[in-house]
Amino acid sequence: MRRVHDLILPFDNNPAERTIRIAKLRIKVSGSRRTLLGAHDFAAIRTYLAATDRHGQNMPDVLGQAMRSRPWTPAA
Rank of each mutant, 00 (worst) to 15 (best):
M1Q: 09
R2V: 02
R3K: 14
V4T: 09
L7E: 04
L9F: 07
L9K: 12
F11Q: 13
F11S: 11
F11D: 14
F11R: 15
D12W: 08
N13A: 01
P15L: 04
P15D: 06
P15V: 02
E17K: 09
R18T: 01
R18F: 00
T19D: 05
R21W: 07
R21H: 05
I22F: 11
I22H: 11
I22E: 14
A23H: 08
K24D: 00
R26M: 00
R26Y: 05
K28V: 02
V29E: 06
S30V: 05
S30E: 00
S30N: 08
G31W: 07
S32R: 15
R33A: 14
R33E: 07
L36K: 12
L37F: 11
G38W: 09
A39C: 04
H40L: 15
H40W: 12
H40D: 08
A43G: 06
A50T: 11
A50V: 07
A50H: 15
A51V: 02
T52S: 13
D53R: 15
D53W: 06
D53Q: 08
D53N: 10
H55K: 13
H55Y: 15
H55A: 13
G56H: 02
G56I: 01
Q57W: 02
Q57L: 05
Q57R: 12
N58L: 03
P60T: 07
P60N: 01
P60R: 01
D61F: 09
D61H: 14
V62C: 10
L63P: 01
A66L: 15
R68S: 12
R70H: 15
P71E: 14
W72A: 10
T73P: 00
T73F: 09
T73W: 10
P74Q: 07
A75E: 14
A75C: 11
A76L: 10
A76H: 11
